[in-house]
Amino acid sequence: MNLMKKLLYKRIRLVIPALGICILSTALTLCWNLQLSAIINIVNSNGIITSGRIIAAIITVIACMTISYMLSMISGWICETMAHDLRMGYAGHFTSLSLLEIDNLNSGEQLSMLQNEIGDIYAFLHNNLFSFADDAVKFIATFIWMLWLNPSLTLLFNIPTVFITLYTAYASKVIGKAVHRSQQANAHMNGFADTLIAVFPILRLFDAAQLIRAQYNAALDQWESARVIEENTRAKLMSLSAVLSCIPLLLLTLIGGTQTVKGSTAIGTLYVFINLSGNVSGIMMNMPGRIAMFRKFSADMMRIEPFVSIQTGRIRK
């Protein structure tokens, strides 16, 4: 992940404001939920919702909309810029090779690396990098906010989260291994495309299509079984993870409901706890998949690292 560190360091002037916007976005979400809690308490007590309260809520909605737009724009800009840096680093590598190294280059393989590995890395950066950061900020901020509102309810409904975390760590490790095996089988199978075209004249001259088909089919069978194992593992572990993730909601309703009936918690507070429980347990539920994706990303990064030369030092372009 040295390459990732270099990429992030190079664009640190963009990354820090983006993290700031992430924090602001979470703060606004919490503010919105605080307002909702107050409105729900009024609804339940048959009280009056004042126009001032409604205007404040509308302002929060507009602020949330603006911040969502800004966060998406800045995170997109960073990812695109990092992808550009990566492409340039990859291109720069070829200009640093000696003639002998160039003679041994397989252009099909190199182009396929640009399309596959760098493509996968780009997809990960684009879909996950800032959603990782955003989730982390959401998780921490929501948890602290919940603790401030109702410490006993927060701690009690989140006790299973600790076990879920341990389980997800185990699950992601198992899924990661399965993903790695299926990726290797996939790379082996994809390599046949290049081989097929390279040996095509021999295939025709020596009537050897059956030989390469048999080899390809064997590689395909390997990929199929690796992929089936990967998906079965994922389905089993993630289904269990989904069941486990229902426990916090269940406990929240059970304990929070009892507290509400006994008068120690307001119904509005319970409602926003349920609303925001996704920011804590929901993030947990997605952990195995996320970590598995991160492992794949890290493997892709390691594969291309020798072929990418990133100039350290912050630049503006």
Partner: peptide
Amino acid sequence: RRQVSVVMQNPMLFPASIKDNITCGH
């Protein structure tokens, strides 16, 4: 094609054993 054998400057080998490269699976 059944009547000719061709040898090229850059020999193209299958990712297989020496034997398979000679027999071409026949």
